[in-house]
Design a protein around this nucleic acid. Sequence first.
DNA 1: CGTCTAGCTTGACAGATGTCAAAACAGGGT
DNA 2: ACCCTGTTTTGACATCTGTCAAGCTAGACG
Lengths: 99, 99
Amino acid sequence: MEAEQAAVVAPMFKALGDPVRLRLMSMIASVPEMCVCDLTPAFDLSGPTISHHLKVLREAGLVDSERRGTWVWYRVKPEAFRQLGALLDLPATTAPTTA
Amino acid sequence: MEAEQAAVVAPMFKALGDPVRLRLMSMIASVPEMCVCDLTPAFDLSGPTISHHLKVLREAGLVDSERRGTWVWYRVKPEAFRQLGALLDLPATTAPTTA
DNA sequence: CGTCTAGCTTGACAGATGTCAAAACAGGGT
DNA sequence: ACCCTGTTTTGACATCTGTCAAGCTAGACG
């Protein structure tokens, strides 16, 4: 793997390298999309902290978010998962999991 | 995913979340085993720094090392990869992509 | 307009992380 | 025994990270 590619992919792994973010990803991936209002109460952490972790996942390209009215909805970006899976020598399937 | 499982798996992702370690893994995984003496010169980093990164990979359970005479050899632990792969690879429950 | 709720941003701070130089450790060869 | 090379450990330091409190923004509803 070239340094260039590593610089792109490493942030994705890094984003998954925190137990809170890993659980957030798992929750988001378990349904088509998930509201922040349903994610936050699942953790013993402040709202700003959850918001921070979601931002890390967004900036790593692992999830997308969209505001619809009062609430903000998050969903996974399957192409990012395919990229990671390919690196782990997996049969390239399509989407992420409920983990 | 439960908090417990996340606490076990997150360190593996975290270990891969550094570009240097990702390239080290890639190099080690590309052959049956690889000598530290062949890993170090591939980077513009000091020996101790490479050794530190290898230690992180070891402690995450991603690689094993063995000293044979003068040199130390590293190889991947396939079972760790299977575990990560299982988390990333799954039937598509993916979201409606709105982009 | 005022206000309520949901979510994000800022600022601050303790603790973790990546890096190197220097020193220590391990083997092989002379 | 001595040194020489390869690897790890230790110590130090600047930067990054996870967390919270406080403040801010966005939209809904009277």
